[in-house]
Computed example of a mutant assay.
Amino acid sequence: MIRMMVVDMLEEAGFVVAEAPHADAAWAILERCQANIRVLFTDIDMPGSMDGFVLAERVADAWPHIGLVVTSGGRRLADSEVPDSGHFLGKPYRPKDLLLAIREAV
Rank of each mutant, 00 (worst) to 15 (best):
R3K: 14
M4V: 13
M5V: 12
M5D: 12
V6K: 02
V7H: 00
V7G: 01
D8V: 03
D8W: 12
D8M: 13
L10C: 06
A13G: 11
G14N: 05
V16H: 14
V17P: 05
A18Y: 13
A20I: 04
H22S: 11
H22W: 09
H22T: 06
D24V: 13
A25L: 10
A26P: 02
A26N: 03
W27K: 13
W27Q: 13
W27M: 15
A28E: 15
I29C: 11
I29H: 07
I29A: 11
L30N: 03
E31F: 04
N36K: 11
R38L: 07
R38K: 13
R38F: 01
V39D: 00
L40D: 00
F41D: 00
F41A: 04
T42Y: 05
I44T: 06
D45R: 13
P47T: 05
P47I: 04
P47D: 05
G48M: 03
G48P: 01
M50V: 14
M50S: 08
D51Y: 04
D51Q: 07
V54F: 06
V54M: 13
V54L: 12
A56K: 01
A56C: 06
R58C: 09
R58M: 11
V59W: 06
V59A: 08
A60K: 04
A60E: 07
D61R: 12
W63G: 08
P64K: 02
P64E: 08
H65G: 04
H65D: 04
I66P: 00
G67E: 04
G67N: 01
L68R: 00
V69D: 05
V70W: 00
T71L: 00
T71C: 09
T71D: 01
S72D: 10
G73N: 10
G74D: 13
G74E: 13
R75K: 15
R75N: 14
R76P: 09
L77S: 06
L77F: 13
D79C: 14
V82L: 10
S85G: 13
S85Y: 10
S85P: 07
H87S: 15
F88C: 08
L89Y: 00
G90L: 04
G90F: 01
K91L: 06
P92C: 05
P92S: 03
R94C: 03
R94K: 12
R94S: 07
P95R: 09
P95Y: 03
D97V: 01
D97C: 01
L98N: 06
L98Q: 07
L98D: 03
L100E: 09
A101C: 07
I102H: 00
I102Q: 00
E104C: 09
A105V: 05
A105E: 09
A105Y: 05
V106H: 08
